[in-house]
Amino acid sequence: MRLTVNGTEHEVEVEPEMPLLWVLRDELNITGPKYGCGIAQCGACTVHVDGVAVRSCQLAIGDLAGGEVTTIEGLGQPESLHAVQQAWVEHQVAQCGYCQSGQIMQAASLLDFNPAPTDADIDAAMSGNLCRCGTYPRIRAAVKAAAQKLQGA
């Protein structure tokens, strides 16, 4: 089975029902997307498929249908941060950080669809991503800052 992740094509030999998350983590060693719940309750595994946020624990690799996958590693790297990642650093959002890959991927997707989200939009878009440490006040602020940054760009 072939798939494209962060612009690189890969060939994996797995059963079609294996979730994309586990193909990424255990077959390709791309560990930015995290396992948290396995049932779309936490959002830690969020990636983009053709630019849209998807819970990779819920997408069977056989259902990827040629979609191009972007993971947190493909969004931006430490030396070339995406605007959302930059906002996350500036607002010192993370505590344990385990959910933040998913939070950032969800926020980036939100801003792609809705460049100037209201507080209510942010609360609606981001409430599928669980943060057990409770960094929500900082996530809210960072999403707004990233929106401004992206609009100014």
Binding site: V89, V93, A94
Partner: peptide, 15 residues
């Protein structure tokens, strides 16, 4: 740990 945690590059035990 902030940049690493914001870029998916931090290695947790599970990684």
């Amino acid at each position: 740990d902030m940049v690493a945690k914001s870029t998916g590059t931090l290695t947790y035990g599970i990684d």
